[in-house]
Amino acid sequence: MRSIYVDLTRCLGCRACEVACGRIHGKSRISVAILRDRISMPLACRQCQRATCAMVCPTEALVQEGEGITFFPERCNGCGLCLLACPFGLVNLWAGKAERCDHCMEKSPACVATCPSGALAFGEEMAFAKAARTRAVLRASRAIEGVRR
């Protein structure tokens, strides 16, 4: 299943993702946290496989289905328990209903398409992990360049 991944070495904290998501959904479902003026990270619904939001929903509007979460807006009464339960604080209440990131209806997330620095990615693979490994190898390789000769 697909996730929105963040390459933390690339996030600029520009918040283009927030503006893009807000442009499409009214209120942004992705939120950028800037910490101690050193690092920033955009976060959208983590699609947990044991989702607390689904566990607390009294009307079964949020349901754990397979490995993902499905939302049935017609069942939602806007009680906001999901908002309280989410450990990441990524559920919104908008126009009386809960809202969370659904990967732009599992198509092409706008935040990913708009991210200027390429920090956001959507898909099966964790390309950011590969990039981190490559960086580590490059650092090591530069370090031992002298040793080999």
């Binding site: 520009c14 283009a16 503006v19 708009t114």
Partner: peptide, 12 residues
Amino acid sequence: ASEGSLCPKGNA
């Protein structure tokens, strides 16, 4: 230059 991306001002 942008490969489709837009910063917050472009989006707005």
